[in-house]
Design a protein around this nucleic acid. Structure first.
Length: 296
DNA sequence: CTATCTGTTCTGAC
DNA sequence: TGTCAGAACAGATA
């Protein structure tokens, strides 16, 4: 379930740990998860870790890029030691960083049954790409291909300066009848928005997810943009959202779930104090949570 | 055991 | 061209 704030958290954590390291090996356990030639990424060092929408881009010194999309269940886990010593106690002995879909076996042996790709670095540390449902991918691409994907598949980022009312009105022109929730979740419109942060942003703006794009007033557009930025920045600040039942063992538990007001709050009283009860409906096949009273 | 649900994105049909 | 169902996949829940 990684969305923009989760992916940004992963980017930051990875950036601190792997920039400057040289890739010395790669193991691919699921062919579909890796698109490219393995030999192309063995040898170069990592120069940067970037993010665009929900995509992570690891830049290499040979001008190639490792692009990752975690989709629903992808994880990127960094380990200083490539294998755990045998025994019952599986406590970590080195620096470790995990990010992505939460699961209870993050702290277990790596690689595990969900590990699709393993990268090894010159200092023997490793980066594991785990993905239970195999929706995610890692692609080896040249710079031009990366730019082309960024341009074609994604609109402006909500936190960009260019993400203005005028920009959104331009995007809205041809799809006046679409509801605001699907509009906001369109990656070619608001890059990186996912289900959780869309529901939360609409609540923050007190706009109903069912409203049509054509009925949104200028001041509401403005409020919506401000709300999206506020919610996304909050998400980044708290290190993303982690499932409530998930207990992280290596220090990178997200805290945003404690600040959600409608997402997965079905049946609870509205945080606004308006007297409403959070309702769950389906819009465009996605679970949608909102307050029918104060979200107009 | 089967049916349903989840959450992101792409594809194909109308 | 916009809209929508279905697929990709695995596991939890009913």
């Amino acid at each position: 379930m990684p969305e923009l704030p989760e992916v940004e958290t992963i980017r930051l954590g990875l950036s601190k740990r792997i920039v400057g390291k040289k890739i010395t090996g790669i193991d691919v356990d699921n062919q579909k998860s890796f698109v490219g030639k393995k030999d192309d990424v063995i040898g170069p060092s990592i120069t940067d870790v970037q993010r665009r929408a929900k995509v992570i881009c690891i830049k290499l010194s040979n001008d190639l890029n490792l692009l990752f999309h975690l989709k629903l269940t992808g994880q990127l886990i960094y380990r200083e030691v490539s294998s755990m010593p045998e025994g019952k106690n599986k406590e970590l002995s080195g620096d470790s960083f995990a990010g992505g879909h939460p699961s209870h076996d993050w702290h277990m042996n790596l690689p595990n049954s969900n590990t699709r790709i393993t990268f090894t670095f010159n200092d023997k540390s490793s980066l594991f790409f785990n993905d239970m449902r195999k929706f995610g991918w890692c692609k080896v691409l040249i710079n031009d291909e990366v730019s082309a994907i960024y341009k074609k598949d994604y609109g402006f980022e909500p936190l960009d300066k260019e993400f203005t009312v005028e920009y959104l009105l331009g995007k809205a022109k041809r799809i006046q009848n679409r509801n605001i929730k699907q509009f906001i979740m369109d990656q070619t419109i608001a890059a990186g928005m996912g289900n959780i942060y869309t529901d939360e942003s609409l609540f923050e703006a007190r706009i109903s997810p069912l409203r049509k794009v054509k009925d949104i007033s200028l001041s509401e557009w403005k409020t919506l943009i401000e709300s999206m930025c506020k919610i996304l920045e909050l998400g980044i600040k708290y290190g993303g959202t982690t499932d409530s039942d998930y207990v992280n063992v290596d220090g990178k538990k997200g805290g945003m779930q404690e600040h959600l007001k409608v997402y997965h709050k079905t049946g609870e009283p509205c945080a606004d104090g308006c007297g409403g009860v959070v309702k769950r409906i389906t819009i465009g096949g996605r679970g949608t949570h909102y307050c029918p009273i104060c979200q107009k």
